[in-house]
Design a protein around this nucleic acid. Structure first.
Lengths: 217, 217
DNA sequence: TCATGTGAAGCAGTTCACAGCG
DNA sequence: CGCTGTGAACTGCTTCACATGA
């Protein structure tokens, strides 16, 4: 495994996107692509693609472009997707169970191996081949399943203590879907994903006077 | 309604977060807060809070801080949350129906008024008090319900054409949960939200050598 | 006195433009 | 010739530090 260069979150996120674009091209049988054609096709910026790619190596052929399969493979490896990541979902309400099925149909890189919930009603139930365990048992469940990544899908007021539990259980990568901003504990990678924030962002532009209901074309 | 100042997406997103923090303080009966105490409490930056707030007005009292209720009210108004936004969800699979229930329990600012799906199996079913309509009927459904905001929760290959349909139906704000980067049509506000990207971001750091399974405390 | 509001400094991310190479 | 890889310019965001005012 080569040394991991410093890559910003922004670049990292775009690499994920590039990878998906390349997979699409692969399926279409496209073998070579230039940064410009990639950009046009998928609403990206060509100079940004080149900058992002050179941040971890040189893969292109001048005058030609990039080999689709090779580049996809390199990004796949860089992102660490060649090993399977085991997920534990905390909170199996609507969102939690949706995330469970959403993350499952993916490729082989991610697998939901455990789910816990504080509601005794849910404990013991089987949701998409995963048996829901009691919230108190996170540590045991994590140890038994070897989960690496935690998904927090509980109400806002429970999120902080769930994070503590996950970290105590040895989890170092966390995705928080609760509508609170959790701080990153030392040595833990945490990303807050608040869908209401996204909603409010797009809603904001509706009040713009110049966008007010023009006669539709 | 005062003129809408230019506010970057980053600032806008943070304002959503500040609003939630202020609501929490309100519930606790806190009446006044300084940028510094807000920052400490919720893992934010105090100078950033001040900068963000002054981008649309002056609300603080020097030497004291901000009045929690007033500031919350001002942000609420700025974000346009004092009017109800009507959502239409396209794609009522696992993710779509989870989003439907997730966005519903919110406050009064957002309401799911319509849902469509291409699968005849789902059409006609009632999911959380919303009857699922046929995908071909988006335009009619949008017109009848007065939906303003579109939520795309369909597979990647269908997303682009769904966007076209929504725009043709007069929708100007869209949240895309399909794992493709859609371009923003003229006059439309679109935000791509790809959960796999978030997963891959936190997963990336697991391969870091220095983070490799230290004995847990 | 204390915390806001703000210019100025610092930093990061993006775009430009072209040298270099297949 | 065409496209990559890349320094340099540029743009925008964040942090700093302090004058200002309740």
């Amino acid at each position: 495994m080569p040394d991991k260069p410093d890559i910003s979150s922004l670049t990292l996120n775009r690499l994920s996107v590039y990878l998906r674009c390349l997979r699409t091209l692969e399926e279409e049988g496209v073998e070579t692509v230039s940064s410009q054609s990639l950009a046009r096709r998928f609403h990206l910026s060509s100079s940004q693609i080149r900058k992002d790619l050179t941040s971890f190596g040189e893969f292109g052929v001048r005058g030609v472009g990039y080999d689709v399969a090779t580049l996809a493979q390199r990004i796949h490896e860089l992102l660490g997707l060649d090993v399977e990541h085991r997920l534990v979902i905390v909170g199996m309400g609507h969102l939690g169970s949706a995330l469970a099925s959403y993350f499952r149909f993916n490729d082989r890189s991610f697998r939901v191996v455990a789910a816990v919930d504080a509601d005794p009603e849910l404990v013991g139930r089987e949701i998409g081949s995963i048996r829901v365990a009691a919230a108190d048992d996170v540590a045991r469940v994590v140890a038994e399943t070897g989960a690496h990544i935690g998904i927090i899908a509980v109400p806002a007021d429970a999120a902080a203590s769930v994070l503590d539990d996950l970290v105590a259980a040895g989890i170092r990568s966390v995705l928080n879907f609760a509508p609170v901003t959790l701080g990153e504990p030392e040595g833990v990678r945490l990303r807050n994903v608040d869908m209401r924030v996204f909603l409010e962002e797009v809603a904001f532009f509706l009040q713009d006077p110049e966008v007010s209901l023009a006669p539709s074309d």
